[in-house]
């Protein structure tokens, strides 16, 4: 195939000789500066380990109280779920669904997809839906917004600090842990390598 020695920049479509940078270095498009390739050490194994860690942190982060407040003797805890449920009970369905998707469901789906893909690649096991999983992972990634939610917690706490006493719950620590796990997960998953490994498993000759 004539295309085998070339690749194209995703942002400006410049035809390039395939870059194969060393681990630790990066390849950028010479014309538009787009990050083309950033290989990682043990990308598959790290993704597997981090997604297991993320799955463990997900439950305490979702169900344990993040922040609690105390006003005139009343105490109240807030978890990721109570926010969504309260919005739902106030008939703010659209907002409730948006918050549910971006702070609960999509982070969960992302971690599960990472686990499935890296688990199969680690054990060199084929699966009918392997390409679909990686495809959806790449497309859903940007809709999980844990780090924005974290900033939301900070702003809410500053607003409340004037009128009430705040307590930070165990859930918050799990949530911050999940946030870091997620960030590491995104930076350690090497898309090029994953697609290459999948092609090898499927017996296709392919380089990207």
């Amino acid at each position: 195939m004539p295309a085998a020695h070339f690749s194209a920049c995703p942002d400006c479509d410049l035809l390039l000789n395939r870059a194969l940078p060393q681990i630790g270095s990066t390849a950028h498009c010479p014309r538009c500066g787009c990050l083309l390739h950033r290989p990682r050490t043990d990308s598959v194994e790290r993704t597997l380990a981090l997604s297991i860690a993320g799955l463990l942190l997900l439950f305490p982060a979702n169900f344990l109280p993040l922040v609690g407040i105390k006003v005139l003797g009343h105490e109240k805890d807030g978890t990721l779920w109570t926010g969504v449920m309260t919005l739902f009970n106030e008939h703010q369905w659209a907002v409730a669904i948006l918050v549910f998707l971006s702070s609960i469901l999509l982070p969960f789906i992302n971690i599960v997809l990472c686990l499935l893909v890296s688990g199969h690649l680690h054990h060199n096991r084929r699966h009918r839906y392997l390409t679909h999983w990686l495809y959806w992972l790449q497309h859903l990634e940007e809709w999980a917004m844990l780090e924005v939610y974290c900033l939301g917690i900070i702003v809410a706490c500053v607003k409340l600090s004037a009128m009430a006493e705040l307590q930070f719950g165990l859930g918050l620590y799990a949530f911050v842990g999940l946030l870091f796990t997620n960030a590491l997960l995104t930076s350690n998953l090497d898309g090029h390598l994953f697609w290459q490994r999948i092609a090898q498993l499927n017996g296709q000759h392919y380089e990207n």
Binding site: K76, D77, G83, M85, L87, V95, G152, L160, A164
Partner: peptide, 17 residues
């Protein structure tokens, strides 16, 4: 995505207050 800040803040406030 960072504009979602306000929405998330409201979701925390309605649950707590």
């Amino acid at each position: 995505r960072w504009s979602m800040l306000d929405i998330f803040m409201i979701s925390i406030l309605v649950a707590l207050v």
